[in-house]
Design a protein around this nucleic acid. Structure first.
Length: 496
RNA sequence: GGGGCGUUAGCUCAGUCGGUAGAGCAGUUGGCUUUUAACCAAUUGGUCGUGCGUUCAAGUCGCACACGCCCCA
């Protein structure tokens, strides 16, 4: 029902009156129209025929869609596949039908049956033999040339954005294709797609603040997952040697052009693989997506160009700091004191009681990451910030881990998995100690996960890829909101 | 959390020095009826984001708030 105080504008009121008149005559929202063709199919099939050939063929067709243009007797319909012009001359119908045509508005959805012909200007057109209003649109569409440009309205009313902005429709079609490609890619490598809990009693698998909810029947606090990692590795213990999950994670953190509280993540685990194998796989995957989506290994993104035919650069955390912060002496990374001194000299903000590895990563996050444009694997992450990753055999302070940076953004994070249950128990203890000393992002101790590792997990490598950022990359989108159909927005306050 | 910018008709946008609000599209009425951002004539439409203040007078100046965008932490 319409709220009484909702002061509808005149345009909507006029359309509502038209709908009332339709209701008085017939079923206002009929659903019996049989749509036999799509606009794109018809154009592909008949566009190459001449005007005369089409007259000889006398092809009939039935299409349905939304009216998006009216040029006198010519009406452009938009359907799921594209657009096609209709010829609807109200002089060639009964008075009653002519009135109905006059009452059509931009945005109405109609079904048309008739014969295909070419106009004097050569545009393939469907001459309406019969026509039927299927859905009356009560709200006026945005500007027919400029579409809807107000970013807030585009996100809040995505359905309007999709009606009028083709670029927007394309982004989400591309997103869907990328998701399909990823599934095909992993299936071709004998990975099995699985679904693990999104509601968890212990939120694990990442250092991030979770959303908290409550299960009434069990009277128990539960968390929306920040990552599926620990469950996927339980499956590797169970004998599924190649698994992947492509679904939503939830992190209770701020919003930005790169962060949405719920976001889509691909995680995959491969037994008997090492993190180096996953770097190779990642290069291959990105190359295939680039070629499949853009027809070329080269991708333009926000003014940069990346060629995914080339192998990605590989650089350790400390080497990247040396390269981008003009540090020449390796001694800067030798001790906690020297790393703290380096952070101070680079004007990096950090907490006094942080460990060496954490301060080191803070230097990387604040001073290096944004500067890395071309695809680069950063390796040799400190053990303190990698509680689930395998310890390096030569250097016990670092892990067999990498992150992929492109355009200053983290796209992927992978490592050889820690499968030593006793080391894992120690790492959880350290996380709990950090949590007790006030770090709200630190991990919980997951005893059952350690138990699983005690049964034995084969040597395994695993990786997560942020799908929203991946889609941003391949659609040249500046904001994560542009690749999310319904991005999170603050509620608008009621003006009462 | 801090800073900057924005919010005017259904949509896209102007609005000068503070002086009673304008265009294009959409809409309405009529004409035209193989057009291509269709065209021609006439015409309707405004809590200027919200609130408070300064002023004879506020879309315009000030303050607060809301929402959005960008940058920084």
């Amino acid at each position: 029902m319409i709220e009484e105080n909702q002061d509808e504008n005149k345009l909507i009121a006029q359309r509502r009156e038209k709908l009332t008149a339709i209701r008085a005559k017939r079923v206002a929202f009929p659903n019996g129209f049989i749509k036999e063709d799509t606009s794109t199919d018809l154009i592909e099939k008949y566009e190459t025929k001449t005007k005369e050939e089409l007259e000889g063929l006398a092809v009939t067709a039935a299409i349905a869609g939304r009216i998006i243009r009216m040029r006198g007797p010519f009406v452009v319909l938009q359907d799921g596949s594209g657009q096609m012009q209709i010829y609807l001359n109200n002089k060639s119908y009964s008075d009653e039908q002519a009135e109905e045509i006059k009452a059509f508005d931009l945005g109405d959805i109609i079904g048309v049956h008739g014969e295909i012909f070419k106009t004097g200007k050569g545009e393939l057109t469907l001459r309406a033999g019969t026509f039927e209003l299927l859905t009356k649109s009560l709200r006026p569409l945005p500007d027919k040339h400029k579409g809807l440009t107000d970013t807030e309205m585009r996100y809040r009313q995505r359905y309007v954005d999709l009606i009028v902005n083709e670029e927007s429709r394309k982004i989400f079609q591309t997103r869907s294709r990328i998701m399909r490609l990823i599934r095909q890619y992993f299936e071709s490598l004998d990975f099995m797609e699985v679904e693990t809990p999104m509601m968890q009693v212990i939120p694990g698998g990442a250092t991030a603040r979770p959303f908290i909810t409550h299960h009434n029947a069990l009277d128990q606090e539960m968390y929306l997952r920040v990552a599926p990692e620990l469950f996927l590795k339980r499956l590797v213990v169970g004998g599924f040697e190649r698994v992947f999950e492509l679904n939503r994670n939830f992190r209770n953190e701020g919003l930005s052009t790169r962060h949405n509280p719920e976001f889509t993540m691909l995680e995959f685990y491969q037994a008997y693989a090492r993190y180096q194998d996953l770097m190779d796989l990642t290069e291959d995957l990105f190359r295939k997506i680039a070629i499949e989506i853009g027809g070329s290994s080269k991708v333009s993104f926000q003014g940069s160009e990346y060629d995914f035919a080339e192998p990605f650069a590989r650089l350790s955390v400390t080497d990247s700091i040396k390269k981008y912060c003009s540090v020449v002496d390796d001694a800067a990374f030798a001790s906690t004191e020297s790393v703290v001194a380096l952070a101070n000299s680079l004007d990096v903000h950090f907490d006094e009681n942080w460990s060496k590895g954490k301060v080191l990563m803070e230097i990387f996050d604040q001073k290096v990451e944004a500067q890395i444009d071309q695809p680069t694997f950063i390796t040799e992450y400190p053990i303190e910030v990698s509680p689930l990753a395998r310890r390096n055999e030569q250097n016990p302070e670092i892990t067999d881990r990498f992150e992929l940076i492109i355009g200053g953004r983290e796209l992927a994070n992978g490592f050889s998995e820690l499968n030593d249950p006793e080391d894992q128990a120690e790492r959880f203890k350290e996380q709990v100690a950090q949590k007790d000393s006030g770090d709200s992002e630190a991990m919980h101790f997951d005893h059952d996960y350690v138990t699983a590792l005690e049964y034995g997990m084969p040597p395994t490598a695993g990786e997560g890829i942020g799908i929203d950022r991946l889609v941003m990359l391949f659609t040249d989108s500046a904001s994560i909101k542009d690749v999310l159909l319904f991005p999170h927005m603050r509620v608008q306050q009621d003006p009462t």
